[in-house]
Computed example of a mutant assay.
Amino acid sequence: MSSEAVTVRPGAEAFAADGGSLGFLLSHGFTGSPASMRPWGEHLAARGHTVRVPRLPGHGTSWQQLNRTGWQDWYATVDAELTDLRSRCDHVVVAGLSMGGCLVTRLAQQRPDDIDALVLVNPAVASRRFDVKLVPVLQHLLPSMPGIGNDIKKPGTDEYGYDRTPLKALASMMQMWKDVRPNLDRVQAPLLYFRSEEDHVVDDLTRDLVLAGVSSGVVESVSLTDSYHVATLDHDAELIFERTDAFVAEHVVRDV
Score class of each variant (00 low, 15 high):
M1D: 11
T7Q: 10
P10H: 12
G11R: 11
A12L: 08
E13W: 11
E13K: 02
F15Q: 06
A16F: 07
G23P: 02
F24C: 05
P39L: 06
A46G: 13
T50E: 00
W63C: 08
Q64S: 13
L66M: 12
A76L: 13
T77R: 04
A80Q: 13
A80M: 03
T83A: 12
T83S: 12
D84I: 08
V93G: 06
G96D: 10
L97H: 14
L97V: 03
V104M: 04
L107D: 15
Q109P: 09
P112Y: 13
D114N: 03
P123C: 07
L134D: 03
L134I: 05
P146V: 04
G147T: 06
I148A: 14
I152F: 01
K154T: 14
P155M: 08
G156F: 13
T157G: 02
D158E: 04
E159T: 00
Y160M: 08
G161C: 10
M176I: 00
K178C: 01
D185S: 13
P190L: 10
L191R: 05
L191T: 15
F194L: 10
R195E: 13
S196K: 08
E197F: 05
T206D: 13
L211D: 13
G213A: 09
G217V: 05
S221A: 11
V222E: 10
T232C: 04
E250M: 07
V256W: 14
